[in-house]
């Protein structure tokens, strides 16, 4: 029976229902507590939204996760424990800031590599750029012709 409830709960939670999310019952009266909940919530992804955190979404699932965050807070968990709790249940996908592991080494290294590549590119370019040739002085005749060209006269 319990299994069924969970199965149904999952199924029905995924069914589209235009519920407006933030209910009164899920808020802390204490602003500091509430701010902390917000801070944690901003790290968690609403699983069926665009890249929105559970605090930036109207979806039902986001609401459920907000409730979970608040319940864990009331149970006295630390921020990290709460994130771990949600992470354990929903996997990496729920964390807006991906964890560092074999899957994401490349992701986390990429910014450094890109900036280094840019810097390297700049250095290489500066070294290879055309060096000032000994200025080939134009003859007076050449200058005269150039001026004429620039004045728009037909050569």
């Amino acid at each position: 029976m319990k299994h069924l409830i969970h199965a149904l709960a999952l199924l029905l939670a995924l069914a589209p229902a235009p519920t407006f999310a933030l209910g009164a019952e899920e808020m802390f009266a204490d602003p500091a507590q509430e701010a902390r909940a917000r801070e944690i919530g901003r790290q968690l992804r609403c699983l069926k939204c665009r890249n929105q955190s559970i605090f930036d979404s109207n979806a039902g699932l986001a609401k459920d996760l907000r409730v979970v965050v608040r319940e864990r807070m009331e149970a006295g968990d630390t921020d990290q424990q709460i994130l771990d709790y949600v992470h354990d249940r929903f996997g990496d996908y729920v964390l807006l800031k991906p964890p560092v592991n074999t899957n994401t080494y490349a992701l986390w290294i990429a910014p450094f590599v890109l900036v280094l590549l840019g810097a390297g590119g700049a250095v290489v370019y500066m070294r290879q750029r055309p060096q000032p040739k000994p200025a080939t002085e134009l003859t007076d005749a050449d200058r005269e012709e150039a001026r004429r060209i620039l004045r728009g006269e037909k050569t």
């Binding site: 134009l138 050449d142 200058r143 012709e145 150039a146 060209i149 620039l150």
Partner: peptide
């Protein structure tokens, strides 16, 4: 100006 002249000449 000298450089511009040189380029213009080259282009022409």
């Amino acid at each position: 100006l000298a450089e511009i002249e040189r380029r213009a000449l080259h282009a022409a």
